[in-house]
Nucleic acid binder design. Structure first.
Lengths: 243, 243
DNA sequence: TCGTGGCATTTGGTATGCCAAAAACGTAAT
DNA sequence: ATTACGTTTTTGGCATACCAAATGCCACGA
């Protein structure tokens, strides 16, 4: 009889299916190149120089020690992500976002995060919600966020990502992570700006309180308004950030 | 003789810069393959058969008349989109979404669309908003949507896409289009189900009215609740849709 | 001096060939 | 007949070679 081919284990070791589920996935050169290039792109300050940043396939393949083929596949993937754009017979250019695009992304982020907040009020556990406060435990009246902007900025990002994760919605998590990668292109310059930092912490605490109170509408509104506030800030003050 | 192909204009016609802006972009085989495969994947009914749908690089390259290289690059792009997943030395499998994933996507869609509605109340022109009614002009009490499900389903999709477009937010437009492509995997089975169709039209009209009234909060709420309603419906009745 | 034509170079696009892993197949031994 | 084992085939990954378009350099000539 046609028994399903799935693990035709011999009778003796039928019950010894130890945790040997998958041996080394051994990521391909394509994926390695993708990760390497993605990190490199995110690390470089694209908005520092006026002239566009270009990539060279052959130079990359030589530097990474692989042929052009996996490099090109990685480039194709990065292009899908919107990080680069290849112009036929001209070169591969690292995409620079305009202020309008960044603002637009932040608005989308606000939409997704407010939905996450909504979901959290109905599903997350109380202790997990309260744990969100830990991200800011190093800040207080004696140690103001605006005096440690860089550190607060990291805590800020971590908080938002943890918040979204609480929604237990893979789609929301993935989409916001993608957006954050683009927005973080000029991390020091936006998220952690001193004048916004002052109002940021209280707003975060307000969100947490609404979540704990299971107030769906309020949590959604506070999450949305908080991030829309960032969008408005960038729109108003971000002019100098784009040379 | 090799005449310069790029019309190096002589001084006489220096100011006669006619509309010769760009010659044929001539999309590459890579992009052609990407489009072709994407359409093919969306067209096939992935959820019809129990066994996973596989793709074969060599077969595809032969059928499309190109080598494997552009095919592989197209596959890499599709994998970034989440349409396929290549398993090393096993094959390329068309991804099948679970009910939970679809519901999750619809929720994200609801989030983005409600943000679009919010933006529309502050920026869109009245006449553009009112024009949204045209999508449903073929339906009335004499010609109920639930009696023309297929046709209404198309109008439904078109309405939602037009709605998002009114936000003039490229990010929202792109993200929702991507989500819709995945959700539409079983178009007839979800969006246009008869029992939901009856309540769909009034809700749409309600959204349009809120937009026209520039009632930001109400428009946002109606847009969100409408699409969340679909999510809830799929979650409740979608069991049979996944074999 | 200036510009014009062409040749060399650069760069992305594509085709092809080979490799190793794994599945598929077939054969022989029990 | 079933199992075990070895061979063949399949399949994705990667390297390499070639092409054609676009660019830039440079010599030649008005």
């Amino acid at each position: 009889m046609p028994e399903p081919k799935q693990t035709k284990a011999s009778p003796i070791m039928a019950d010894t299916d130890i945790a040997i589920v998958r041996i080394a996935p051994e990521t391909s050169f394509k994926n390695k190149a993708y990760e390497a290039l993605k990190e490199a792109i995110l690390k470089m300050d694209i908005y520092a120089t006026p002239e566009p940043v270009m990539l060279d396939e052959r130079a990359l393949s030589e530097r990474l020690g692989v042929s052009r083929t996996p490099i090109r596949e990685a480039i194709a993937m990065l292009e899908q992500d919107g990080f680069v754009k290849t112009v036929p017979r001209r070169g591969i250019v690292v995409v620079r976002r305009t202020k309008a695009e960044i603002v637009d992304m932040i608005r989308a982020w606000a939409a997704l995060e407010s939905m996450a907040a909504r979901l959290i009020t109905t599903t997350a556990r109380k202790k997990d919600i309260s744990a969100l406060r830990d991200f800011f435990k190093d800040f207080s009246d004696d140690r103001l966020p605006q005096d440690h902007v860089e550190e607060y900025s990291k805590a800020n990002i971590a908080f938002h990502q943890a918040l979204i994760s609480l929604s237990e919605s893979p789609v929301l998590v993935d989409l916001t992570n993608d957006l954050l990668l683009h927005v973080r292109g000029y991390r020091q310059l936006t998220i952690g700006r001193k004048d916004r930092t002052a109002t940021s912490l209280p707003e975060h605490l307000g969100i947490i309180e609404a979540l704990e109170a299971r107030d769906t509408e309020l949590a959604e509104k506070r999450a949305r308004d908080h991030t829309l506030g960032l969008a408005a800030y960038v729109e108003a003050h971000g002019q100098e950030l784009f040379t």
